[in-house]
Write a protein that binds this DNA or RNA. Sequence first.
DNA 1: TTCCTCTTCCCCCGATTGCGGTATTTCATC
DNA 2: GATGAAATACCGCAATCGGGGGAAGAGGAA
Lengths: 213, 213
Amino acid sequence: MQAIKVALFEDNKHLRESLSILISGTPGFQLTGAYPDCDELLYQLNKELPDVVLMDIEMPGMRGTEAVKLIKKDFPEVQVLMQTVFQDDENIFQSICAGASGYILKTTSPAQYLEAIRDVHQGGSPMSPFIARRVVSLFAQNVSVPSLHNYQLTPKEKEVLSLMVQGKSIKMIADASDISYETVRTHVKNIYSKLHVNCNTEAVSKAMREKIV
Amino acid sequence: MQAIKVALFEDNKHLRESLSILISGTPGFQLTGAYPDCDELLYQLNKELPDVVLMDIEMPGMRGTEAVKLIKKDFPEVQVLMQTVFQDDENIFQSICAGASGYILKTTSPAQYLEAIRDVHQGGSPMSPFIARRVVSLFAQNVSVPSLHNYQLTPKEKEVLSLMVQGKSIKMIADASDISYETVRTHVKNIYSKLHVNCNTEAVSKAMREKIV
DNA sequence: TTCCTCTTCCCCCGATTGCGGTATTTCATC
DNA sequence: GATGAAATACCGCAATCGGGGGAAGAGGAA
């Protein structure tokens, strides 16, 4: 089996060296590099593309979450495992939105570190039960339920509605869709009637809330 | 230490009995009941309130996710651990939205079952790395980033904007806020200027997307 | 063929909005 | 006491929107 190639970003010298020894010294793992900051992030990844990046959230210069965004933009197949001493909502939230797959604490044991690296590499998202709880709870708060109702909008009406959501005026929609102003107005009237609203803001708000478009 | 009280809902007789023996036979765990369906769900919970409910998603009669909603509505402090053979997005999504804390597969080993029960009871959300990945990925798709920008809206402007998002017209906002029509118009103008938009739908759309209100 | 839906287009008219101003009062800060 | 931000309020005017009609072609279903 091919060894899992790991790149390490960690500003703390002691931890960086400990992890380096752990990773390079364990069969099945290969360290492609250990860096104290993200200054030459993309260059370093290009040099030898790792399977997994182990990223500290708190670092001098570029924040870990910013670095993740860059990585996922240029190397979407690279799996990123965040490590941190904090487990506040903001950090978890930012990391996940940036594209990180796993999120572990620095208090994690060496064996669990390796296990977590293996997990992300195999397509999992290792995280402590506590962090998982935060994610689940953030999730339940943020997710909106897509359209329980079916408002029976026709394809053209959906198209018009989605342009309305983008903030376009009737005139702009007419231009964009290459149909006449009056036709757009007719569609809009029908949309209002089907959504049971009577102005543009209500329609936009309802469309976004219920993810109709 | 107090034993963790567990109620079990599982229609498969064999699995139900195996889990019953496992739970009641392990020190630190106490089985308050094992039921093949959710017909008398609330009655059964009332009889002896468990700390943790182990719920099968696939059951005759009431679906597991529906049952979870009922449980969390009447007994919000009860922790629910879902168990299933499926790990599709829809089931995961429904369970989390219903209020379940953990989500494990029936292929989980007895020791891990007990560990997961312990985890949910201690405020964690045990889930396999694969399921965690699905949650993270669903999350990243659904969550919108709350205002990276700070548009410096004043409290009154935020109030007006939130009423606009609710679909209210300027006249309605004036009535609701008990200020004059012209004042609301002034606020709206300032909001447009700060958000860099120039019509009501754009403002509403931006406000919702960036969770400004 | 007839019926129905979807899409297209048009008119009228009152209400509302967007944009340009100006102006006063309050209130905290300097 | 001066300054500035926030909230309040008003006017005018062009443009857009919302609601009310009517109408006609294309295409599928009964």
